[in-house]
Design a protein around this nucleic acid. Sequence first.
DNA 1: CGTTGATCCTGGGCGC
DNA 2: TGCGCCCAGGATCAAC
Length: 294
Amino acid sequence: MPELPEVETIRRGLENRIIGREIVDLRCGDPKIFQAQTLQRMETLNGERILDVGRRGKYLVIRLDSHRLIIHLGMTGQITVNDPSSGDPGGFLRHPVTGLQRARQHPPDRHTHLQLLLDDGRTLMLRDPRKFGKVVLLGHGQPEADLFFSHLGIEPFTEDYRLESFLLRLDRRSKTPIKAVLLDQSFVAGVGNIYADEALFEASVHPRRRVGALGRAGKKRLFEAIPVVLGRGIEFGGTSLRDYIDSDGRSGRNQDELNVYGRYGQPCRRCGTAIRKIVVSQRGTHFCPNCQRR
DNA sequence: CGTTGATCCTGGGCGC
DNA sequence: TGCGCCCAGGATCAAC
């Protein structure tokens, strides 16, 4: 579900509200989403203060006095801060047309797998119906964190995001369809199915195109397109198609800005040709057959 | 080593 | 209304 822009939106929302708070109690749900040794160590978080909230790729990193709490949201993970004094009755409401959840807050239910009770009375909650998400507790040392993230590729919006390293990683994968490379987190961290399709449209590259058949110009356009579509996603508060909500329980607005994802059959905003949907590396893939030639 | 496909889950939507 | 099937913002791991 959540790709870099959605996780970044959640991170920014949390940053404003949970930094400096102390964890006074916690509850864990299904052990499945906790890494093997993490579950039994979770209670050591009691009494720790939240120092900051970071992000690497699609991972949220909550830094505490002596731990890093790492959360990956998988497909359906939601992180919200529940504030009992807000007057919001909570609960799930469904928009009659879009089906999106409109409730600002939800009480814990059978899909709530982590609750961190904070010293200001609010609760940080993780909800994940499909349980593809992961919670990992690390020590506070930087080497431990570096090791944990060592499988991830270059991080957009940092000084590591340079054309030379982009091309270097790309050219190792000459036989692979470009879309599959974009989805690979060891290439560029944070791109998922929506933003891969959007970046390919932005760069006018066909999703099935093999990397080896891509010219330098096409590769450079992709290099530039990725931060453009991710940046737009952040600017519009993330893309809410099904489950995504921000830490306030609000939907994003980027779904209205998408050029291809979910728009099959509709006219391309650039040339009017009907957007097509195909399958590439087992993922639904949307593109304009006129703007993105093989 | 790079690449493909199956697998982990639940819920919503659709056709019959 | 109900059942079966297909689909879904992800990532890992076995097998070629």
